[in-house]
Nucleic acid binder design. Structure first.
Lengths: 330, 330
DNA sequence: CTGAAAGCGCTTACAG
DNA sequence: CTGAAAGCGCTTACAG
């Protein structure tokens, strides 16, 4: 049997379709008995409203796009998971859009989702976004990006205090007696990337320590590459801060392959605090981002931007997740 | 300026909106000059067709749902990535639906996507799927599941030969001289899970070896738990086959925490062949599933089911990805 | 090849 | 509280 439409339900219930419509969408606007009868008839027929027709007519839909560069990156997977439930709790339906680092894809997704009457969008970029360009895709300021943005543009943002995160890692290593602390970059060109490495360099300077940065490749491969370089050094660092957990995994892997044990020979701290780090060898000490809270806030800010035109920039505090990849210098 | 509609474009181009519609949707049905003029005018106005209105009118859309239990699981993330491009190449738009292991969510997603006129759906289940129930959600046989299905139901499937995969791992370990080979389960109750563990047991029997199975918890936690148990054993196995890579990671982590080195003290082989395994410590030897091909095939089978009602069951061959987590028995 | 009309499945002022 | 009508933005036989 084919799916029944609103007219068939109306006929079966002996009312006009506008009454059926109201019974579903504005229940308080219809007589209780009528409504219950309609709902019963509808349920018996297996009727559900067409979200398509509703969206077309009302020019709004519950679909909210989350645009991420790569779902295979556990950080974004975690973010997607958290935001799916955050969105669901507020009556939205998250739709995950993956750009695969295609520069034009963000615009296409925004355009497409605008056509679906998405009320707003959230973007976790892989490269620095141009707010002016972003605004041109029909969402105006009904956008929140999970990164800083260039200027004081009308786009809300949620980030963590990256400098504070790096400081947490640095201080932890200092307290363990380390003075030869290196940094492995390996993030694409977001503000996030810049903020973290800048924080590392100014911390090194402030403590009168030599800064050693490894900055080739992206992600786990950056870590692996740095591991090879470190293994070949005459006076290698005794501790390394990785720009994120994936970088740290790659680093530890490459070090291990060359007989350098973590944390025995070198301490490593990651950044992100992914659950995956609890199952790495050794379990990874890492600066934790409150991903759940970031996701929740992104939805809240986006709603506020859409409804009242507010633009906010909220900065959350990271904390240090102590596991087993760091130890005293020896 | 608000987004222009088809009528405004028609007016600006001096034609009827049906001609504009044709210029976009059936270009060969309109005079070349007229068409080019329309397209130009439309482009100048920034016009794009409403996918919503199109879907409502034609009762078809390019949206195809991929339903997965957990996007945080790298296997599903990998699958989602591969299928996004496979779908894109064929003119579809993948929409990722995450159930979070909520049993009723699959039905809800199917229902919702049916309402969006999705042409078909693909499901990567976390528990054994009931084909009869699945068919009740409006997709009929326009469904492919990535797992075996119970009976010879009218639902297409794509899987790999799990028994062969386990055999590959087992033979590799045997060749390395291992005779005390354990198995860590830790998958939810799909056919995939059952096929793998059955294969292990029958291989052990066939070779006259003792079967030792650890079967508590799910995913990385199952691995960690097994690691603790193994560390406490009087005569521990010298090699372990993990039901998937996440289980293997957890296992190696727990073993490492107790001073048991892989592969020096025990060899470990995973299952899935995730890219992540290249950055683990040590890099993980694993039975690789051809995820890319599985994704591509899922789309193909689904199309065939939707268009011609064909149902297929294709079984792909895994291979062994040799990395560094296995070594000769000592 | 192009236009006029009907209709996809809903919602929402407007009457009553 | 309920019904009748118009309309969201398209497509597609049907005429011409």
């Amino acid at each position: 049997m084919p799916v029944p439409g609103i007219d068939e339900v109306a006929a079966a219930a002996g009312v006009h379709k506008s009454t059926v419509s109201r019974a579903f969408s504005r229940p308080e606007a219809v007589n209780r008995q009528t409504r219950e009868h309609i709902l019963q008839v509808a349920a018996a027929m297996g009727y559900t409203m067409s979200p398509l027709a509703q969206a077309l007519r009302t020019k709004t839909s519950p679909l909210v796009p989350l645009i991420v560069p790569d779902i295979t990156n556990p950080f974004f997977a975690e973010l997607a998971k958290m935001m799916t439930s955050a969105a669901g709790e507020r009556g939205y339906q998250l739709v995950l859009c993956v750009t695969e680092n295609d520069a034009a894809a963000t615009g296409r997704y925004l355009q497409a989702m605008g056509g679906m009457y998405a009320p707003f969008a959230v973007i976790a970029p892989s490269v620095r976004v141009d707010p002016a360009e972003l605004e041109s895709f029909g969402f105006g300021g009904r956008l929140v990006v999970i990164d800083r943005v260039e200027t004081d543009h009308a786009i809300s943002t949620v980030t963590i205090d990256h400098a504070r995160g790096i400081e947490l890692a640095f201080d932890h290593l200092l307290a363990l007696g380390h003075t030869a602390i290196a940094y492995v970059s390996g993030l694409a060109g977001t503000h996030t990337a810049g903020d973290r490495r800048r924080a590392y360099h100014s911390l090194a300077r402030a403590h009168g320590l030599q800064a050693t940065e490894f900055d080739e490749h992206i992600g786990a491969e950056a870590g692996r590459h740095a591991g090879e370089r470190i293994a070949a050094m005459a006076g290698p660092p005794t501790a390394v801060i990785a720009a994120n957990d994936m970088v740290a995994f790659g680093l530890i892997s490459a070090l291990g392959a060359r007989g350098i044990a973590v944390p025995h020979d070198v301490s490593v701290v990651g950044f992100d605090g992914l659950p995956l780090g609890a199952s790495s060898n050794p379990p990874l000490t890492s600066v934790r981002q409150p991903i759940d809270e970031m996701g929740r806030l992104a939805i809240t800010l986006a709603e506020r931007a859409a409804q009242k035109g507010h633009v906010d920039h909220v900065v959350l505090e990271p904390d240090l997740l102590l596991r087993s990849s760091t130890g005293p210098v020896r």
